[in-house]
Design a binder for these strands. Structure first.
Length: 294
DNA sequence: CCCCAGGTTAACC
DNA sequence: GGTTAACCTGGG
């Protein structure tokens, strides 16, 4: 991968291991829209576009060289060696097959507060409705983003201050977040009162996991999602309904919470990345659950 | 009408 | 300490 500044943006060349659709629609992010070669994301108080120029060359804009080095490089997880995942799992052919088929799926490093709230919303919910609730939450409580010449009105993700001041009933009515509304406000208030979101990256995994579960609406699964998608804990291993199916039906893991969580060990120090690929692959191809060797 | 969706919680044993 | 319903809401 090489990059250079150009006309208000950054051209990324030879970006191997990047598939926009897999990355933006695998269920880790809820604020990217688009298809094929043109995507628009609302990230960090601004609207950015990511467009494929050709092959493995992409144009990210608006974006300065400083912003690329200081933010986007990390956001897109560009320093991760994805090819090494296959090397690590070389003794497990079934897993290697899935990793190969999910080539280009990148684990994004997103904003901590946004990830906290969107994954509280994700509980017992569908991807499309999570997106819908998130969009209305931004529209109702987020700060408008001035979009130079665009037609779509965009909003920044609400800050903890903005959500802490909201009433759960209003969120329920305006955003359709249901019983999660009270969790959203409760978690935002704890962040306002000093919950150390920013320290989660540096804390040992076990401590960070325990700490996060003090927030309302955050259980083991959601806590692992936050650690994996926002805090750089690559071993964080969210166990959801799909991974449960995969582990029990494909890998023969006993259907008990402890056994399912411990199964992370078989996927190495970057188990979270492999979890995300398994999740995405089997959700796209549920029939493969019946024939693990196909 | 019932069931499920990238779960969490409170109440039980 | 593990197990069991209830839970907003929209779609199949």
């Amino acid at each position: 991968m090489r990059w250079r500044e150009s006309e208000g943006g950054v051209i990324i060349e030879n970006w191997t291991e990047f598939d926009a659709k897999l990355t933006f629609e695998c269920g880790q992010a809820f604020r990217w829209e688009g298809e094929g070669d043109r995507w628009v994301g609302t990230v960090q108080n601004r609207l950015v576009k990511l467009e494929r120029i050709e092959g493995k060359t992409w144009f990210l804009h608006p974006c300065s060289a400083g912003e690329f080095e200081g933010y986007w490089r990390r956001y897109f997880d560009m320093d991760m060696d994805y090819a090494n995942l296959i090397e690590q799992m070389k003794d497990d052919l079934v897993t290697c097959q899935v990793i190969r088929r999910m080539q280009g799926l990148r684990v994004l490093r997103q904003e901590r507060f946004e990830t906290l709230i969107t994954f509280i919303i994700s509980a017992n919910n569908h991807f499309n409705r999570i997106k819908k609730i998130t969009a209305s939450l931004c529209r109702e409580y987020g700060t408008p983003i001035p979009d130079s010449g665009g037609i779509v009105a965009a909003y920044a993700f609400p800050t903890s201050t903005q959500l802490a001041q909201a009433s759960p009933d209003a969120i329920r009515e305006k955003c359709g977040a249901g019983y999660r509304s009270a969790y959203i406000v409760g978690a935002a208030r704890m962040v306002e009162e000093g919950f150390p979101l920013a320290q989660l990256d540096e804390l040992p995994y076990d401590e960070a996991l325990k700490l996060l579960q003090q927030l309302p609406g955050v259980g083991v699964k959601v806590a692992n999602c936050i650690l994996l998608f926002a805090c750089g804990h690559r071993g964080a291993f969210p166990v959801d309904t799909w991974i449960k199916k995969v582990l029990t039906q494909v890998y023969g893991v006993p259907d008990r919470p402890k056994d399912l969580q411990r199964a992370a060990a078989r996927f190495g120090p970057e188990a979270g990345y492999i979890q995300q690929m398994l999740f995405c692959y089997y959700r796209m191809h549920p029939e493969a659950l019946e024939n693990p060797n196909s």
